[in-house]
Structure formats: structure tokens, C-alpha cells
């Protein structure tokens, strides 16, 4: 006697909406046991697929924007453009973090996991503290992109550590930390509109970059 599972199978599954099967055709065929079954095959719409925008544009990587952002980080005293407000770009930060990792790799330190951990923890700290302090909101991706772009001076420091002697680098460390923290704090202040609290915004950013500087020196 065959058990009838029909009641059991119908109950938990909901009926799928019709819109999900727009690009599908239903095919009827017979099983090896002779029972009638149905499957669905996807239909390719070539006209729809090949009229899409190019891949870099779809991912949001715009090289002219990245170039302008790098220039704005290198010139922190210049007035900040609003590229940081418009898009939270993660291509540049990924480049700088990986460059920092490879600079550590050349001096014989495998610090990729360390960079990942410190970056996530520090970005979460900055995100929570700034959102609690200010009346306006900031996105987590925006904080990651800003701190990632402002990591450029520390990449220069890690590269100088390979070539120059230790005494010269020891002078260069506070300069690079202050440079990057000043650049980041100006951007955060302009987004969140809290010019009176610039020192308070700058301090967690300063701590975040000192951790990377300690990594680079030792």
C-alpha cells in the first residue's frame, strides 16, 4: 500500500507568484516509471541582456571620480568636493587596503587578516560614535570609503619603511597619521555638519590610523 503524502506536501509550500516565471517555459515529459512530470526551462532574452550598460559602470567604478577623490585626500586644506556624499565607492578602498597588505608582505609580514579585523572593528566604532553624536545619519559604506581613501598617506609610510632607515621613518610616522586623520575628519565634518565638534570627530579616526601606523613600523 502506497502512502499518500499529498496533504503533507501541499501544506508547507506556498504557491509561487506568476511573475517569477516570466522567462520560463514549462515542458511536459514522461518519467522512466511512466508518470507524467513537468519541468521549467529558462528562456534567454538576447535583446534584453546585450543592451545593458558596461560592467565597470554597473559596478559603480568610475576612474575619473577615484582620481578626483585621491587628489582631494592629498590636498586636505582644499575645500572638499561632494563626491564622497554622492556615492559610497568601495573600489578605491579595496585597492588601498590591498596595497598596504602587499607593502607589509614585502617586509615579511603577513598581515591581511589583521588589516581586515582592525578595519572592520574601527569602521564600526567610527560609524556608531558619529551616528550617536550627530543629528544627521551616515551610511556604513560611506565611512568605509572615506577611511579607505584617507589610508593613502599610511600606504606611503609603509612603502617608505621598506626603503628608508628606521630613524627617518620615526619622524615620518606622526606626520602621516595627522595628515590622514585631518583629511578624514574634514570630510566627516562636512557631511555631518558639526564644525564645532571637529576635535571629537577626529579622535577616533586618529586612533584608527595609529593602529595601522603601529603595524607599519614594527
Amino acid at each position: 500500500m502506497q502512502p499518500n503524502f499529498g496533504d503533507f506536501y501541499e501544506a508547507p509550500y506556498q504557491k509561487t507568484p506568476q511573475n517569477r516565471f516570466q522567462n520560463t517555459d514549462r515542458v511536459f515529459f514522461q518519467d522512466s516509471l511512466g508518470q507524467n512530470r513537468t519541468t521549467s526551462t529558462t528562456r534567454l532574452d538576447f535583446d534584453q541582456d546585450f543592451n545593458e550598460p558596461p560592467l565597470l559602470e554597473e559596478l559603480g567604478i568610475n576612474f575619473s571620480h577615484i582620481y578626483k577623490k585621491i587628489l582631494s585626500v592629498l590636498n586636505p586644506f582644499k575645500r572638499v568636493d561632494h563626491f564622497f556624499l554622492q556615492d559610497s565607492d568601495l573600489a578605491g578602498p579595496l585597492l588601498f587596503f590591498s596595497l598596504l597588505g602587499f607593502c607589509f608582505l614585502l617586509s615579511g609580514k603577513i598581515h591581511f587578516g589583521y588589516i581586515y579585523g582592525v578595519g572592520t572593528l574601527g569602521n564600526l566604532l567610527i560609524y556608531f560614535v558619529l551616528n550617536l553624536m550627530s543629528t544627521e545619519q551616515i551610511n556604513l559604506y560611506q565611512t568605509i570609503s572615506i577611511t579607505g581613501y584617507c589610508l593613502l598617506p599610511l600606504v606611503i609610510l609603509a612603502f617608505c619603511r621598506l626603503l628608508l632607515p628606521f630613524g627617518f621613518v620615526f619622524i615620518l610616522v606622526p606626520v602621516c597619521i595627522l595628515w590622514s586623520s585631518y583629511a578624514a575628519s574634514t570630510i566627516f565634518v562636512e557631511i555631518l555638519e558639526m564644525k564645532e565638534q571637529k576635535w571629537l570627530v577626529g579622535y577616533p579616526v586618529f586612533l584608527f590610523f595609529t593602529c595601522f601606523a603601529i603595524m607599519a613600523v614594527f
Binding site: L125, V129, M133, L200, Y203, P204, L207, C211, I214, F218
Partner: peptide, 21 residues
């Protein structure tokens, strides 16, 4: 609680610096 959180993180950073030395 802004001050205490920052102070605790500075303590962590100083301990890290000391351990690295």
C-alpha cells in the same frame, strides 16, 4: 560616555604599543 569609550580605546592602543616594543 564618549570620553570613557575613547579613553578605553587609547588604553588598548598604549598596551598594543607596549606589547609591540
Amino acid at each position: 560616555l564618549y570620553g570613557p569609550v575613547m579613553i578605553v580605546f587609547t588604553l588598548a592602543m598604549l598596551l598594543l604599543f607596549a606589547m609591540k616594543l
